[in-house]
Amino acid sequence: MRQIAIALLAGGLFGAGLTYSGMVDPARVQGFLDLFGNWDPTLAFVMGGAMIPMAIAWAVQRRMKAPLADAHFTLPGTTQLDAKLAIGGLLFGIGWGISGLCPGPAVVGLVLNPWPALIFVAAMVAGMAVERFAVK
């Protein structure tokens, strides 16, 4: 129960940050990617801002034996660079550029601008399902 509450709190704060920073506006995000148009640097400030608490958190994490509300850390341990990482990153970037959307803002969009967000999220889920069942 305590874990659920922490996850809900983290998700809520994450969604609030996305919203306050303007990152839930796909046109603004696309504006960041539009170097040859009316460039909007806001996303760089958001990324920079998010890095500060996380850099501190990683430093703290290295001194902790276990997280505060679980028995152990469950963190990605893969260090191998492979084609999946590269191709996945590139395809995601193309979709991100086309739409101005990545997964977090897309989910938030379901309450801010439901109809287009629903179409996008349905397609995103379909894309995830294709990866799950077609890629081995």
Partner: peptide, 25 residues
């Protein structure tokens, strides 16, 4: 551009991610 809102919102996102990391690992 919204540099101040971006920075504040970014800090919120970073704290949220820190809560996941240090709270739930």
């Amino acid at each position: 551009a919204m540099p101040v809102e971006g920075l504040i919102g970014g800090l919120m996102i970073g704290v949220a991610a820190a809560v996941m990391l240090l709270g739930l690992g």
